[in-house]
Design a binder for these strands. Structure first.
Lengths: 236, 236
DNA sequence: ACCTGAACACCGTTCAAGT
DNA sequence: ACCTGAACACCGTTCAAGT
Protein backbone atom coordinates (compact mmCIF):
# COMPACT_ATOMS: atom_id res chain seq x y z
CA UNK A 1 0.00 0.00 0.00
CA UNK A 2 2.75 2.39 0.85
CA UNK A 3 5.91 1.22 -0.88
CA UNK A 4 4.19 0.10 -4.04
CA UNK A 5 3.80 3.01 -6.36
CA UNK A 6 0.92 2.81 -8.86
CA UNK A 7 1.48 3.29 -12.50
CA UNK A 8 1.35 7.03 -13.00
CA UNK A 9 -2.28 7.90 -13.73
CA UNK A 10 -2.97 9.38 -17.09
CA UNK A 11 -4.23 12.93 -16.76
CA UNK A 12 -7.54 12.09 -18.29
CA UNK A 13 -8.19 8.80 -16.53
CA UNK A 14 -11.27 10.28 -14.85
CA UNK A 15 -12.86 13.59 -15.74
CA UNK A 16 -9.82 15.68 -14.96
CA UNK A 17 -10.51 18.10 -12.14
CA UNK A 18 -11.09 21.28 -14.13
CA UNK A 19 -9.25 24.45 -13.20
CA UNK A 20 -11.33 26.81 -11.09
CA UNK A 21 -12.84 29.74 -12.94
CA UNK A 22 -15.59 32.12 -11.99
CA UNK A 23 -17.74 30.80 -14.83
CA UNK A 24 -17.18 27.22 -13.74
CA UNK A 25 -18.07 28.06 -10.17
CA UNK A 26 -21.30 29.77 -11.19
CA UNK A 27 -22.19 26.85 -13.48
CA UNK A 28 -21.66 24.38 -10.65
CA UNK A 29 -23.75 26.58 -8.37
CA UNK A 30 -26.60 26.58 -10.88
CA UNK A 31 -26.40 22.80 -11.11
CA UNK A 32 -26.66 22.39 -7.35
CA UNK A 33 -29.59 24.79 -7.26
CA UNK A 34 -31.47 22.89 -9.92
CA UNK A 35 -30.81 19.61 -8.16
CA UNK A 36 -31.39 20.53 -4.51
CA UNK A 37 -32.61 24.12 -4.29
CA UNK A 38 -30.82 27.37 -3.53
CA UNK A 39 -30.68 26.52 0.14
CA UNK A 40 -28.04 23.93 -0.66
CA UNK A 41 -25.88 26.31 -2.65
CA UNK A 42 -23.41 26.96 0.14
CA UNK A 43 -19.74 27.66 -0.12
CA UNK A 44 -18.95 24.36 1.55
CA UNK A 45 -21.24 22.27 -0.63
CA UNK A 46 -20.00 24.03 -3.74
CA UNK A 47 -16.41 23.39 -2.74
CA UNK A 48 -17.16 19.72 -2.16
CA UNK A 49 -18.76 19.53 -5.60
CA UNK A 50 -15.72 21.13 -7.18
CA UNK A 51 -13.44 18.86 -5.24
CA UNK A 52 -11.67 21.60 -3.34
CA UNK A 53 -11.87 23.46 -0.05
CA UNK A 54 -14.25 26.35 0.62
CA UNK A 55 -11.41 28.81 0.99
CA UNK A 56 -10.52 28.36 -2.67
CA UNK A 57 -13.80 29.88 -3.82
CA UNK A 58 -13.09 33.20 -2.21
CA UNK A 59 -10.56 33.92 -4.92
CA UNK A 60 -13.43 34.24 -7.42
CA UNK A 61 -16.48 35.17 -5.36
CA UNK A 62 -16.62 37.81 -2.66
CA UNK A 63 -19.26 36.12 -0.55
CA UNK A 64 -22.41 34.03 -0.63
CA UNK A 65 -24.69 36.95 -1.56
CA UNK A 66 -22.59 37.76 -4.63
CA UNK A 67 -22.71 34.11 -5.61
CA UNK A 68 -26.50 34.07 -5.48
CA UNK A 69 -26.74 37.27 -7.50
CA UNK A 70 -24.48 35.73 -10.14
CA UNK A 71 -26.75 32.69 -10.34
CA UNK A 72 -29.77 34.90 -10.90
CA UNK A 73 -28.17 36.87 -13.70
CA UNK A 74 -27.31 33.56 -15.34
CA UNK A 75 -30.95 32.43 -15.24
CA UNK A 76 -32.14 35.80 -16.51
CA UNK A 77 -30.83 34.75 -19.87
CA UNK A 78 -34.13 32.88 -20.26
CA UNK A 79 -36.27 36.02 -20.05
CA UNK A 80 -37.74 36.79 -23.44
CA UNK A 81 -36.41 40.15 -24.53
CA UNK A 82 -38.57 40.60 -27.60
CA UNK A 83 -42.13 39.59 -26.78
CA UNK A 84 -44.72 38.86 -29.42
CA UNK A 85 -47.84 40.78 -30.36
CA UNK A 86 -50.09 43.24 -28.65
CA UNK A 87 -49.67 46.89 -27.76
CA UNK A 88 -46.86 48.14 -25.56
CA UNK A 89 -48.76 47.51 -22.32
CA UNK A 90 -49.38 43.89 -23.22
CA UNK A 91 -45.82 43.32 -24.31
CA UNK A 92 -44.56 45.01 -21.16
CA UNK A 93 -46.67 42.68 -19.08
CA UNK A 94 -45.34 39.72 -21.06
CA UNK A 95 -41.73 40.59 -20.29
CA UNK A 96 -42.50 41.13 -16.62
CA UNK A 97 -44.41 37.88 -16.43
CA UNK A 98 -41.47 36.10 -18.02
CA UNK A 99 -39.14 37.63 -15.42
CA UNK A 100 -41.51 36.63 -12.64
CA UNK A 101 -41.68 33.08 -13.96
CA UNK A 102 -37.91 32.69 -13.59
CA UNK A 103 -38.06 33.89 -10.01
CA UNK A 104 -41.09 31.74 -9.24
CA UNK A 105 -39.08 28.66 -9.92
CA UNK A 106 -36.72 29.63 -7.11
CA UNK A 107 -38.12 31.68 -4.29
CA UNK A 108 -34.73 31.93 -2.63
CA UNK A 109 -33.38 33.67 -5.69
CA UNK A 110 -36.08 36.32 -5.45
CA UNK A 111 -35.16 36.96 -1.85
CA UNK A 112 -31.53 37.27 -2.84
CA UNK A 113 -32.39 39.67 -5.67
CA UNK A 114 -34.16 42.01 -3.29
CA UNK A 115 -31.06 42.44 -1.25
CA UNK A 116 -28.20 42.07 -3.72
CA UNK A 117 -29.39 43.34 -7.09
CA UNK A 118 -27.88 41.42 -9.95
CA UNK A 119 -25.80 43.56 -12.25
CA UNK A 120 -24.72 41.25 -15.04
CA UNK A 121 -25.44 41.56 -18.73
CA UNK A 122 -28.78 39.77 -18.65
CA UNK A 123 -30.16 42.13 -16.05
CA UNK A 124 -28.96 45.11 -18.03
CA UNK A 125 -30.68 43.82 -21.13
CA UNK A 126 -33.91 43.38 -19.18
CA UNK A 127 -33.82 47.02 -18.07
CA UNK A 128 -33.15 48.11 -21.62
CA UNK A 129 -36.17 46.16 -22.85
CA UNK A 130 -38.45 47.64 -20.21
CA UNK A 131 -37.29 51.19 -20.89
CA UNK A 132 -37.81 50.72 -24.61
CA UNK A 133 -41.40 49.57 -24.09
CA UNK A 134 -42.20 52.42 -21.71
CA UNK A 135 -40.72 54.83 -24.22
CA UNK A 136 -42.84 53.34 -26.95
CA UNK A 137 -45.89 53.94 -24.75
CA UNK A 138 -45.03 57.60 -24.43
CA UNK A 139 -44.17 57.44 -20.72
CA UNK A 140 -42.05 60.50 -19.87
CA UNK A 141 -38.39 59.47 -19.48
CA UNK A 142 -38.04 60.33 -15.78
CA UNK A 143 -41.16 58.41 -14.87
CA UNK A 144 -39.97 55.50 -16.99
CA UNK A 145 -36.62 55.42 -15.19
CA UNK A 146 -38.16 55.39 -11.73
CA UNK A 147 -40.97 53.16 -12.93
CA UNK A 148 -38.66 50.37 -14.04
CA UNK A 149 -37.48 50.12 -10.48
CA UNK A 150 -41.06 49.92 -9.26
CA UNK A 151 -42.02 47.22 -11.74
CA UNK A 152 -38.99 45.02 -11.10
CA UNK A 153 -39.29 45.41 -7.37
CA UNK A 154 -42.94 44.42 -7.47
CA UNK A 155 -42.20 41.36 -9.57
CA UNK A 156 -39.31 40.36 -7.35
CA UNK A 157 -41.13 40.90 -4.07
CA UNK A 158 -44.15 38.99 -5.32
CA UNK A 159 -41.96 36.04 -6.18
CA UNK A 160 -40.19 36.23 -2.84
CA UNK A 161 -43.54 36.20 -1.14
CA UNK A 162 -45.67 33.83 -3.15
CA UNK A 163 -43.33 31.44 -4.88
CA UNK A 164 -43.54 27.91 -3.56
CA UNK A 165 -40.90 27.65 -0.85
CA UNK A 166 -37.58 26.09 -1.62
CA UNK A 167 -38.75 23.51 0.83
CA UNK A 168 -42.15 22.68 2.18
CA UNK A 169 -45.37 23.19 0.19
CA UNK A 170 -47.31 21.88 3.19
CA UNK A 171 -45.96 24.60 5.42
CA UNK A 172 -46.73 27.30 2.84
CA UNK A 173 -50.34 26.15 2.66
CA UNK A 174 -50.62 26.26 6.46
CA UNK A 175 -49.11 29.74 6.54
CA UNK A 176 -51.62 30.98 4.02
CA UNK A 177 -54.55 29.40 5.83
CA UNK A 178 -53.40 31.01 9.06
CA UNK A 179 -53.25 34.47 7.49
CA UNK A 180 -56.61 34.02 5.78
CA UNK A 181 -58.05 32.77 9.03
CA UNK A 182 -56.78 35.78 10.95
CA UNK A 183 -58.41 38.12 8.43
CA UNK A 184 -61.70 36.25 8.36
CA UNK A 185 -61.72 36.10 12.14
CA UNK A 186 -61.50 39.87 12.52
CA UNK A 187 -64.29 41.34 14.61
CA UNK A 188 -66.81 43.56 12.83
CA UNK A 189 -66.80 45.79 15.90
CA UNK A 190 -63.11 46.54 16.13
CA UNK A 191 -62.14 46.01 12.48
CA UNK A 192 -65.20 46.75 10.37
CA UNK A 193 -63.38 47.25 7.07
CA UNK A 194 -61.32 44.08 7.42
CA UNK A 195 -64.41 42.11 8.38
CA UNK A 196 -66.39 43.55 5.48
CA UNK A 197 -63.68 42.81 2.93
CA UNK A 198 -62.35 39.51 4.31
CA UNK A 199 -63.29 37.62 1.17
CA UNK A 200 -61.77 40.16 -1.21
CA UNK A 201 -58.56 40.39 0.81
CA UNK A 202 -57.76 36.77 0.04
CA UNK A 203 -59.51 36.36 -3.31
CA UNK A 204 -58.07 35.68 -6.72
CA UNK A 205 -55.46 33.37 -8.08
CA UNK A 206 -51.87 34.60 -7.65
CA UNK A 207 -51.44 35.13 -11.41
CA UNK A 208 -54.61 37.20 -11.55
CA UNK A 209 -53.49 39.43 -8.71
CA UNK A 210 -50.02 39.84 -10.16
CA UNK A 211 -51.43 40.77 -13.53
CA UNK A 212 -53.76 43.34 -11.93
CA UNK A 213 -50.78 44.70 -9.99
CA UNK A 214 -48.74 45.16 -13.15
CA UNK A 215 -51.56 47.05 -14.79
CA UNK A 216 -52.15 49.27 -11.76
CA UNK A 217 -48.43 49.99 -11.57
CA UNK A 218 -48.13 50.85 -15.25
CA UNK A 219 -51.13 53.14 -15.00
CA UNK A 220 -49.73 54.91 -11.95
CA UNK A 221 -46.29 55.29 -13.54
CA UNK A 222 -47.85 56.77 -16.64
CA UNK A 223 -49.90 59.35 -14.74
CA UNK A 224 -47.71 60.38 -11.81
CA UNK A 225 -45.23 63.16 -12.60
CA UNK A 226 -41.88 63.23 -10.82
CA UNK A 227 -41.45 65.83 -8.10
CA UNK A 228 -39.64 68.90 -9.34
CA UNK A 229 -36.04 69.60 -8.52
CA UNK A 230 -34.89 66.22 -7.35
CA UNK A 231 -33.17 64.68 -10.28
CA UNK A 232 -29.61 64.80 -9.04
CA UNK A 233 -27.98 61.72 -7.60
CA UNK A 234 -28.19 62.76 -3.99
CA UNK A 235 -28.46 59.32 -2.56
CA UNK A 236 -27.02 59.47 0.96
CA UNK B 1 -14.75 24.92 47.29
CA UNK B 2 -16.55 21.60 47.08
CA UNK B 3 -17.48 20.48 50.59
CA UNK B 4 -18.43 23.91 51.82
CA UNK B 5 -22.09 24.48 51.09
CA UNK B 6 -23.24 28.11 50.74
CA UNK B 7 -26.10 29.52 52.71
CA UNK B 8 -29.20 28.60 50.73
CA UNK B 9 -29.83 31.44 48.30
CA UNK B 10 -33.02 33.38 48.75
CA UNK B 11 -35.26 33.02 45.74
CA UNK B 12 -35.03 36.67 44.90
CA UNK B 13 -31.31 37.12 45.51
CA UNK B 14 -30.80 37.87 41.83
CA UNK B 15 -33.59 38.57 39.40
CA UNK B 16 -35.22 35.17 39.75
CA UNK B 17 -35.14 33.30 36.47
CA UNK B 18 -38.62 34.09 35.18
CA UNK B 19 -40.86 31.33 33.92
CA UNK B 20 -40.82 31.00 30.14
CA UNK B 21 -43.78 32.50 28.35
CA UNK B 22 -44.29 33.38 24.72
CA UNK B 23 -44.53 37.06 25.62
CA UNK B 24 -41.33 36.90 27.62
CA UNK B 25 -39.54 35.16 24.79
CA UNK B 26 -40.65 37.78 22.26
CA UNK B 27 -39.66 40.58 24.64
CA UNK B 28 -36.19 39.10 25.07
CA UNK B 29 -35.92 38.72 21.30
CA UNK B 30 -36.77 42.38 20.80
CA UNK B 31 -34.13 43.33 23.36
CA UNK B 32 -31.45 41.34 21.58
CA UNK B 33 -32.46 42.87 18.26
CA UNK B 34 -32.23 46.40 19.61
CA UNK B 35 -28.85 45.67 21.13
CA UNK B 36 -27.16 43.64 18.40
CA UNK B 37 -29.41 43.52 15.35
CA UNK B 38 -31.81 40.87 14.07
CA UNK B 39 -28.93 38.75 12.86
CA UNK B 40 -28.13 37.94 16.46
CA UNK B 41 -31.67 36.89 17.31
CA UNK B 42 -31.06 33.18 17.03
CA UNK B 43 -32.64 30.39 18.99
CA UNK B 44 -29.35 29.62 20.67
CA UNK B 45 -28.55 33.20 21.63
CA UNK B 46 -32.10 33.72 22.86
CA UNK B 47 -31.89 30.58 24.96
CA UNK B 48 -28.60 31.73 26.46
CA UNK B 49 -30.16 35.09 27.31
CA UNK B 50 -33.10 33.36 28.98
CA UNK B 51 -30.76 31.03 30.79
CA UNK B 52 -32.07 27.85 29.25
CA UNK B 53 -31.37 25.53 26.35
CA UNK B 54 -32.54 26.14 22.79
CA UNK B 55 -34.87 23.15 22.85
CA UNK B 56 -37.02 24.84 25.50
CA UNK B 57 -38.05 27.61 23.13
CA UNK B 58 -39.71 25.25 20.71
CA UNK B 59 -42.53 24.82 23.17
CA UNK B 60 -43.60 28.42 22.45
CA UNK B 61 -42.28 29.22 19.01
CA UNK B 62 -42.56 27.01 15.98
CA UNK B 63 -39.34 28.13 14.32
CA UNK B 64 -37.06 31.07 13.70
CA UNK B 65 -39.26 32.59 10.99
CA UNK B 66 -42.26 32.70 13.30
CA UNK B 67 -40.12 34.31 15.96
CA UNK B 68 -39.07 37.08 13.59
CA UNK B 69 -42.65 37.69 12.50
CA UNK B 70 -43.68 38.00 16.15
CA UNK B 71 -40.96 40.59 16.71
CA UNK B 72 -42.24 42.64 13.80
CA UNK B 73 -45.83 42.63 14.99
CA UNK B 74 -44.57 43.83 18.34
CA UNK B 75 -42.77 46.79 16.74
CA UNK B 76 -45.78 47.60 14.58
CA UNK B 77 -47.39 48.95 17.73
CA UNK B 78 -45.41 52.12 17.01
CA UNK B 79 -47.13 52.80 13.67
CA UNK B 80 -49.45 55.75 14.00
CA UNK B 81 -52.96 54.54 13.30
CA UNK B 82 -54.67 57.93 13.25
CA UNK B 83 -52.55 60.36 11.24
CA UNK B 84 -53.01 64.11 11.43
CA UNK B 85 -54.33 66.51 8.81
CA UNK B 86 -54.54 66.51 5.06
CA UNK B 87 -56.82 64.71 2.66
CA UNK B 88 -57.09 60.94 2.52
CA UNK B 89 -54.16 60.55 0.12
CA UNK B 90 -51.86 62.50 2.40
CA UNK B 91 -52.95 60.62 5.49
CA UNK B 92 -52.57 57.33 3.66
CA UNK B 93 -49.04 58.26 2.74
CA UNK B 94 -48.35 59.23 6.35
CA UNK B 95 -49.39 55.84 7.66
CA UNK B 96 -47.37 54.04 5.01
CA UNK B 97 -44.34 56.20 5.73
CA UNK B 98 -44.68 55.44 9.42
CA UNK B 99 -44.80 51.72 8.63
CA UNK B 100 -41.77 52.06 6.38
CA UNK B 101 -39.88 53.89 9.11
CA UNK B 102 -40.26 50.95 11.48
CA UNK B 103 -38.91 48.57 8.87
CA UNK B 104 -36.09 50.93 7.93
CA UNK B 105 -34.69 50.62 11.39
CA UNK B 106 -34.25 46.90 10.85
CA UNK B 107 -33.71 45.69 7.33
CA UNK B 108 -33.72 42.09 8.46
CA UNK B 109 -37.22 42.50 9.75
CA UNK B 110 -38.40 43.69 6.36
CA UNK B 111 -36.88 40.63 4.73
CA UNK B 112 -38.60 38.44 7.28
CA UNK B 113 -41.94 40.19 6.70
CA UNK B 114 -41.78 39.45 2.97
CA UNK B 115 -41.62 35.76 3.63
CA UNK B 116 -43.55 35.22 6.85
CA UNK B 117 -46.29 37.83 7.00
CA UNK B 118 -46.98 38.94 10.54
CA UNK B 119 -50.51 38.23 11.66
CA UNK B 120 -50.76 39.72 15.13
CA UNK B 121 -53.08 42.45 16.32
CA UNK B 122 -50.88 45.34 15.32
CA UNK B 123 -50.71 44.17 11.73
CA UNK B 124 -54.45 43.70 11.64
CA UNK B 125 -54.98 47.23 12.92
CA UNK B 126 -52.69 48.56 10.21
CA UNK B 127 -54.74 46.88 7.50
CA UNK B 128 -57.92 48.25 9.02
CA UNK B 129 -56.48 51.76 8.97
CA UNK B 130 -55.43 51.50 5.34
CA UNK B 131 -58.77 50.11 4.24
CA UNK B 132 -60.60 52.89 6.06
CA UNK B 133 -58.55 55.56 4.28
CA UNK B 134 -59.03 53.98 0.86
CA UNK B 135 -62.74 53.75 1.56
CA UNK B 136 -62.79 57.41 2.52
CA UNK B 137 -61.18 58.20 -0.81
CA UNK B 138 -63.90 56.38 -2.67
CA UNK B 139 -61.72 53.55 -3.89
CA UNK B 140 -63.97 50.63 -4.88
CA UNK B 141 -63.84 47.92 -2.19
CA UNK B 142 -62.29 45.19 -4.33
CA UNK B 143 -59.54 47.47 -5.55
CA UNK B 144 -58.94 48.62 -1.98
CA UNK B 145 -58.59 45.04 -0.76
CA UNK B 146 -56.06 44.10 -3.41
CA UNK B 147 -54.45 47.51 -3.20
CA UNK B 148 -53.60 47.20 0.49
CA UNK B 149 -51.50 44.20 -0.42
CA UNK B 150 -49.76 46.19 -3.12
CA UNK B 151 -49.01 49.12 -0.83
CA UNK B 152 -47.69 47.04 2.06
CA UNK B 153 -45.64 44.89 -0.22
CA UNK B 154 -44.07 47.94 -1.82
CA UNK B 155 -43.25 49.46 1.55
CA UNK B 156 -41.82 46.21 2.83
CA UNK B 157 -39.78 45.44 -0.25
CA UNK B 158 -38.38 48.95 -0.33
CA UNK B 159 -37.23 48.61 3.25
CA UNK B 160 -35.74 45.19 2.56
CA UNK B 161 -33.86 46.67 -0.34
CA UNK B 162 -32.80 50.11 0.79
CA UNK B 163 -32.66 50.05 4.56
CA UNK B 164 -29.14 50.33 5.90
CA UNK B 165 -27.95 46.75 6.34
CA UNK B 166 -28.01 45.12 9.72
CA UNK B 167 -24.30 45.16 9.29
CA UNK B 168 -22.00 47.11 7.10
CA UNK B 169 -22.79 50.60 5.79
CA UNK B 170 -19.51 50.56 3.89
CA UNK B 171 -20.49 47.49 1.95
CA UNK B 172 -23.93 48.95 1.12
CA UNK B 173 -22.29 52.04 -0.32
CA UNK B 174 -19.97 49.90 -2.45
CA UNK B 175 -22.91 47.85 -3.67
CA UNK B 176 -24.78 50.97 -4.72
CA UNK B 177 -21.78 52.44 -6.47
CA UNK B 178 -21.29 49.19 -8.35
CA UNK B 179 -24.88 49.15 -9.59
CA UNK B 180 -24.80 52.82 -10.53
CA UNK B 181 -21.51 52.25 -12.29
CA UNK B 182 -22.89 49.34 -14.28
CA UNK B 183 -25.80 51.50 -15.46
CA UNK B 184 -23.65 54.49 -16.33
CA UNK B 185 -21.20 52.26 -18.13
CA UNK B 186 -23.84 50.88 -20.48
CA UNK B 187 -23.00 51.31 -24.14
CA UNK B 188 -25.15 53.70 -26.15
CA UNK B 189 -24.92 51.22 -29.04
CA UNK B 190 -26.22 48.13 -27.31
CA UNK B 191 -28.32 49.77 -24.57
CA UNK B 192 -29.45 53.14 -25.86
CA UNK B 193 -32.28 53.65 -23.39
CA UNK B 194 -30.19 52.74 -20.38
CA UNK B 195 -27.39 54.98 -21.57
CA UNK B 196 -29.77 57.85 -22.21
CA UNK B 197 -31.44 57.57 -18.82
CA UNK B 198 -28.44 56.59 -16.68
CA UNK B 199 -28.74 59.72 -14.56
CA UNK B 200 -32.47 59.35 -13.97
CA UNK B 201 -32.16 55.67 -13.15
CA UNK B 202 -30.13 56.48 -10.06
CA UNK B 203 -31.46 59.94 -9.23
CA UNK B 204 -33.39 61.10 -6.21
CA UNK B 205 -33.13 60.59 -2.51
CA UNK B 206 -34.67 57.33 -1.28
CA UNK B 207 -37.47 59.17 0.54
CA UNK B 208 -38.35 61.07 -2.60
CA UNK B 209 -38.55 57.92 -4.67
CA UNK B 210 -40.60 56.09 -2.06
CA UNK B 211 -43.03 58.96 -1.82
CA UNK B 212 -43.39 59.06 -5.61
CA UNK B 213 -43.93 55.30 -5.57
CA UNK B 214 -46.71 55.55 -3.02
CA UNK B 215 -48.47 58.18 -5.09
CA UNK B 216 -48.12 56.20 -8.31
CA UNK B 217 -49.44 53.11 -6.55
CA UNK B 218 -52.42 54.90 -5.06
CA UNK B 219 -53.26 56.39 -8.43
CA UNK B 220 -53.04 53.03 -10.14
CA UNK B 221 -55.15 51.31 -7.49
CA UNK B 222 -57.79 54.00 -7.80
CA UNK B 223 -58.05 53.69 -11.58
CA UNK B 224 -57.55 50.00 -12.31
CA UNK B 225 -60.70 47.88 -12.09
CA UNK B 226 -60.46 44.28 -10.96
CA UNK B 227 -60.84 41.61 -13.63
CA UNK B 228 -64.32 40.21 -13.76
CA UNK B 229 -65.21 36.81 -12.40
CA UNK B 230 -62.21 36.12 -10.21
CA UNK B 231 -63.28 37.06 -6.76
CA UNK B 232 -63.47 33.60 -5.24
CA UNK B 233 -60.65 32.32 -3.07
CA UNK B 234 -59.19 30.02 -5.64
CA UNK B 235 -55.62 30.24 -4.45
CA UNK B 236 -53.90 26.99 -5.41
C1' DA C 1 -1.25 34.22 -7.98
C1' DC C 2 -3.66 30.52 -6.78
C1' DC C 3 -4.93 26.86 -3.83
C1' DT C 4 -5.46 24.38 0.47
C1' DG C 5 -6.35 22.13 5.35
C1' DA C 6 -7.54 23.42 9.43
C1' DA C 7 -9.53 26.24 12.58
C1' DC C 8 -12.75 29.77 14.68
C1' DA C 9 -17.07 30.75 15.94
C1' DC C 10 -21.12 29.80 15.23
C1' DC C 11 -26.13 27.85 13.36
C1' DG C 12 -31.52 25.20 13.54
C1' DT C 13 -33.75 21.48 15.08
C1' DT C 14 -34.70 16.92 17.21
C1' DC C 15 -34.46 13.41 20.69
C1' DA C 16 -34.62 10.78 24.83
C1' DA C 17 -34.70 11.61 29.36
C1' DG C 18 -35.99 13.96 33.28
C1' DT C 19 -39.35 16.69 36.52
C1' DA D 1 -46.94 19.60 30.26
C1' DC D 2 -42.84 21.63 30.42
C1' DC D 3 -37.95 21.72 30.42
C1' DT D 4 -33.33 20.11 29.45
C1' DG D 5 -28.45 18.37 27.85
C1' DA D 6 -26.60 16.45 24.31
C1' DA D 7 -26.29 15.33 19.77
C1' DC D 8 -26.83 15.58 14.58
C1' DA D 9 -25.74 17.82 10.73
C1' DC D 10 -24.46 21.51 9.19
C1' DC D 11 -22.91 26.88 8.25
C1' DG D 12 -19.46 31.48 6.47
C1' DT D 13 -15.18 33.17 6.60
C1' DT D 14 -10.22 33.72 7.72
C1' DC D 15 -5.52 32.30 8.25
C1' DA D 16 -0.96 30.52 7.69
C1' DA D 17 1.24 27.61 4.86
C1' DG D 18 2.18 25.60 0.67
C1' DT D 19 2.94 25.46 -4.70
Amino acid sequence: MTAHSDVPRSRRERPAKPALTRAGIVAAAVAIMRADGLGKVTMRRLARELDTGPASLYVYVRNTAELHAAILDELLGAVEAAPGGGDWRERLEQVLTSYTAVLFRHRGLAKAALVARPRGEHYLRLIETLLALLDEGGVPPGQAAWGVDLLLQYATATAAEHAPGDGDAEVAREEWDAVAGALRGASAQTHPHVAGLAAELVSGRPETRISWGFRALIDGILHTPLPEGDTGDTRN
